[in-house]
Design a protein around this nucleic acid. Structure first.
Lengths: 236, 236
DNA sequence: ACCCCACGGCTTCCATGGAAGTTGGCATAC
DNA sequence: GTATGCCAACTTCCATGGAAGCCGTGGGGT
């Protein structure tokens, strides 16, 4: 697992060198997202350090960051555990996303016309991919394209803090999302909702963009949270 | 600066013991908020550890958390620096607050009637204090009461993630807030705006609560950001 | 049979030392 | 006077060891 060398950039970026802490952070985050460490898993830093082939220190520091992100919890002297997600947590996460993404859409619509259209084009491309994936009955591709749409929404809105917050909460929700993907009905409504958002952004209608993005996420919450409750799982 | 003992709770909470890392984190955060370490300040972990009377390790780990919070930045092998706040940052912060607090107000208004009124009473108390402070021409008291109002808004909305996000961004904005407090005109409009929010929450009108909270924060942004720009400071 | 307590193993927490890297200044060349 | 290269001081980064705390287990008492 070699680290690929980044190409030279202007000295604007202090040319981050890959530190072990960063490696551990990324590896652990990925492992949690992909259920390599399932929720409720409990292990020691020593064990993780061994598995990652490094000392305890960088693992310890990476875990501090993961705890700050709400992904793990360290139990004073009993090891570290992966946070399970209760339906309650999903409700909280969706409430944050509803507020944050609506604001992001609003900001996008308030951008100068030229930039607006660039973003709208990218959003449209992602939505087209979703449509195609739906025709192909390829749920994984659909999820990837949907992810890209929502990621683009927050990454291009010109507010780094919004981007970061959205990233953090969607990271938390990722496991639940993957689980429910195959349980709910085919997500045919999303394409139309996305097109509404795109149209509002393209026309620079900030209020409409806000409302459409908001309603889209409210609909998602109102579908997913009851679904999670209905299948009777308390943690995931 | 003693840590006040929380009253006994169910053993749900594992009764956190004060660790050195926690102490360092709180102390540093406080020092940054109160300009003991002014923005742009650059120092070494060694020096901070000396000042706090502990080893380098807990300081190092506390700084990781502060970096995650966006308060400091560690420059690979050149020390740690306190993040300055540009007007751009204030804009970003306010955009987050606008979205998050509006959602919080909305959630409060959707609470059962009994809880709603309890929260509304507390919000009203804070607002009355603001009114009184205004009559006394006591800006510090006004700021404290205003803080309490907005803190109550997010702390009682029933969403821990919203609470945490709001806390993080207001921590970042605290220095700017203290600076502008004495520069802008007397904040007489806030009381009325707060009362609108409270009334909507009391009546359970979620949409109205959302709109009033949103408009209140938009007004604050539209007053503060130009003010910061006008006094010509690039960082603070 | 059942309860209690002490002990041993395992864990995080913190201190400290060495390694790698950055910076600023000083000496030297032109 | 100016530029350049080297060196010493200082920094974070990471490894490691000891201290303190938590948990399960097993042995002894009732």
């Amino acid at each position: 697992m070699l680290v690929n060398k980044l190409h030279m950039r202007a000295k604007q970026e202090p040319e981050r060198k890959p530190s072990l802490v960063e490696d551990a952070y990324k590896a652990l985050k990925d492992a949690i997202r992909n259920n390599v460490f399932p929720p409720g898993y409990q292990g020691s830093e020593q064990e993780i350090a061994l598995r990652l082939g490094m000392s305890r220190t960088p693992v310890h520091e990476a875990i501090i960051r993961l705890q700050e992100d709400g992904l793990v919890r360290v139990l004073s002297k009993r090891g570290v555990t992966v946070c399970p997600l209760a339906p309650e947590d999903m409700r909280e996460i969706y409430e944050v996303i509803i507020a944050i993404e609506a604001m992001a859409a609003e900001l996008l619509a308030a951008l100068p016309a030229e930039e607006r259209h660039l973003v709208a084009d990218d959003l449209e491309a992602a939505t087209s991919d979703m449509e195609q994936a739906l025709r192909d009955d390829d749920l994984a591709a659909w999820a990837a394209a949907d992810d890209l749409f929502h990621r683009t929404l927050v990454e291009r809105c010109g507010n780094g803090r919004i981007r970061r917050i959205a990233q953090t909460v969607t990271d938390q929700a990722h496991r639940a999302r993957m689980l429910t993907l195959r349980l709910r009905s085919r997500p045919t409504g999303s394409v139309a909702a996305h097109r509404d958002i795109i149209a509002a952004i393209r026309k620079g209608k900030a209020v409409a963009a806000h409302q459409h993005a908001r309603q889209h996420r409210i609909a998602a919450r109102d579908e997913l949270v009851p679904l999670i409750v209905s299948i009777g799982i308390k943690h995931l």
